[in-house]
Amino acid sequence: MGRYVLRRLLQLVPVFVGTTFLIYWLVWSLPGDRFAGKCGEKPCDPTYIAKMTEKFNLDDPLVLQYLKYLGKLLTGDFGENSSEVAIGSLINEAYPNTLRLALVALLIEAVIGLAAGILSGLRGRGFVDSLTLVSTLFLISLPVFVTGFALQILLGYELQWITPTVTDSPAPWGQLIAPGFVLGSLSMAYVARLTRTSIAENRRADYVRTAIAKGQPPRRVVGVHLLRNSAIPVVTYLGTDLGALMGGAIVTEGIFDIKGIGFLVYDGILGKDGATVTGVVSLLVVVYLLANLLVDLLYAVLDPRIRYD
């Protein structure tokens, strides 16, 4: 087990270098002058351009620029963005918001999604099953911004149960419930459907029949044998989804004005701020890889047949 984890951690290194380089190169090759639009409606003063070019090593070849950046990154220095604000402090400010939002979303999608999936999977064809299928289909077909604006208008203005926009940073947990639901709604629908299928399939599996035949109480058959085996695809999905929730919350963050990293990346891309984008994305890559590792380790816990040595 230890060797497996070590091997997986070592695999992180090339993946990390590869992705950060790719991002750095992509942002670097965006069309247009990176100083355009930075000085209002007129071209930037040449002396300012000279100063910034030197500061960000813009005259160096791409690979050298990247290596200089990576060198600083390894010492924990994310550098500065084009407004000369330390990116570390930007991430520090934005990360708690996104993390909180992602956790709320994950919690909502896991609890509601799993509950709906288990219920409909166990009952089989019937009212609960149809309700789950129809309501999840409804959620899947709605784009996030529709759900977002609809909830903001309905709950924020019409019923006045929530504040329409998040007022503070780090965001108060209570104000994140509606945005978390919006962000998690799509995945929630998938989790419910995945769980439902998985349960319905495993309900007829040999080991379940054996357990019932041995006279075990239904609670134990479902709770231990059936759920544990059915959870594998769902856990895989939730694990990868955590990464997606953190990086892909731009729309939700925009609607509810949550100062998270989704917007930081978006703004960085628009402003051709290579350092910001690469910094945040490297962090996301680490989160993704670690979440995946965790999922793989969970397999072994869930399914004793899986061994890692």
């Binding site: 924020g156 926009t165 509810f256 004005d257």
Partner: peptide, 17 residues
Amino acid sequence: KMFQTNEAAYTAVVSGS
């Protein structure tokens, strides 16, 4: 206060935050 979108700021001023 900085807002991510002009629309979000508008929502905030209408709701009083």
